[in-house]
Design a protein around this nucleic acid. Sequence first.
DNA 1: AAGTGGTCTAGACCACGTC
DNA 2: ACGTGGTCTAGACCACTTT
Lengths: 231, 231
Amino acid sequence: MSAPPNSWQAVQDEVLRRIHSRDWAPGETIPTEAELARELGCARATVNRALRGLAEAGLLERRRRAGTRVAALPVRHARLRIPILRHEIEALPARYGYELLSRRMAAPPGDLRAAPGAPPGDMLYLEAVHRADGAAFAHEARWLNVGAVPAAADTDFTALSANEWLVRNVPVSEGRIEFLAEAASPDEARLFGCAIGTALFRADRRTWNEGRLITFVRQTFRPGYRLETRI
Amino acid sequence: MSAPPNSWQAVQDEVLRRIHSRDWAPGETIPTEAELARELGCARATVNRALRGLAEAGLLERRRRAGTRVAALPVRHARLRIPILRHEIEALPARYGYELLSRRMAAPPGDLRAAPGAPPGDMLYLEAVHRADGAAFAHEARWLNVGAVPAAADTDFTALSANEWLVRNVPVSEGRIEFLAEAASPDEARLFGCAIGTALFRADRRTWNEGRLITFVRQTFRPGYRLETRI
DNA sequence: AAGTGGTCTAGACCACGTC
DNA sequence: ACGTGGTCTAGACCACTTT
C-alpha cells in the first residue's frame, strides 16, 4: 500500500495530502518543482512526474513562469472504456450473437452529409443487432464512408460486426460520442420486446481519421441498460 | 504540427505510424525500448515516455520481460469531463438558476444503505433543481453522509448547490457513475413540462473518500439532453 | 537466470509567459 | 529579462516475469 519513499507516487501522495488538508488551499500557488525536490529529497524529474499527473487529473493548474496552483474548482474526469459490444456481452456473462439486418449503399441523412470530412456521395448503410443469450442487447445503425475505407466495400459484415471489423482494420485519430435517452420507435419496441416509447439509452458516435469521416454509428441499448464508469 | 526530431512526441508519432501502416501488426511484439532508442537516436527515457502514453491509451500492451506488443483489439477510452452543473449551464450559454426543493434528515433507501462505506443511520436528503434561463435543466436528488462530512450539517444549501459545495469542500478519492435512460415520473414531467413517460437521461453517482461513502446523487436531465465526449 | 520495462538521478538546455 | 515548467540525456538500479 505504501510506495517507496522517493518514488513519484510517494511525492504525489504527499502533495495530495497537503491539498486535502488545506495545507495548500484552492487557488494557492505551491512551491516550485526545484523547491519540492529539495524538501522531499528527490530529483526534480520525480516531482515533475508526480505533479504532471495531478495536473492531468485537473487538481493542479500549471503554467510556465507563473508556477503551479491548486485548482479552485477541480474538474473531475471519468475514464470511459469503450469496449466492442461482443466483449461487453461476453463479460456479462452471456452468449454473444450478431445478426446483420441490412446492408446497402444509400444517401446519408442531411445532418450527416453536413458533418466535417463527410463524403459527397453515398455511404454504406449497415443495420445490425447484437444479442446476449439470444435476446436483443443493442441495435446498431451505421453509415460507413467507403471512400475512406475501400476495403469495407468488399466485406459483407454477416460474420464479423462492423464494430469489430473497424477496430481491427481501421486506424482512428479522432472520435466524438454523444449519449442520450430517447423513446423506443415501433421497430425498436419490436426488437427489444418493450412498449413503444420506452426510454432507451443511445450512443451516437462519429470517428475520423486524418480529417476524413470514417463512420457514424447509432447504438441503441435494451431497456434497463446502464453505462458504468469510475472517476 | 511537427514535433522536434528527438521529442517523445516525435517518437510517439513514428510508433503510431508503424502501427497504422501495419508495419507492426496487431499482436506483434515490437522492438525493445533500448533498440528503439538506438534506432531513433534518442534516450531510452524518451522512448519510455512515448510508449507509456500509448500503453495508457490502450494501443500497446507492455509487460516486463515479455516486451511490448501492439494491442490486438485496442480498447478505446474516452475522457469524460464531469463539470459542475453551473458551469455546464453557463457554457450553453444560459443564465444559471438554482432552487432547493427539500432538505431533511431521513433514512436512505435499502440499496443505498447496503452500499459499501454507507453509514448505519440517517443521511441528509437534498432535492434541488438547476435551471437554465429559468427553465428546469436538471433535477437532483442527493443523499449525503453527514457522518463523513460534518460541515454539511451546518450548511443550508439554499444559496450554493451541494454539487458545488462538495467540489469545493470535500476531497474525493473514488467515484462511480452510471448513466441510464428512464421514463419521466409525474413529478419530473411537471418539472420539465413534458409528458409522463418521456425518455430522460439520468446519471447516478456515488463518491467515496477513504472508504467512506460521501454522497449518492441522482441527476435527471431535461428532455433532449446529450452528454458529449471525445475519444 | 536473464531480459525487459519501470523508475530515479543529476545535469542541462529550452520554450514560454509573466513580470 | 528572467524564472518556471517541459523535456532530453546518460547512466544506474530494481521489479517482475518469462524462459
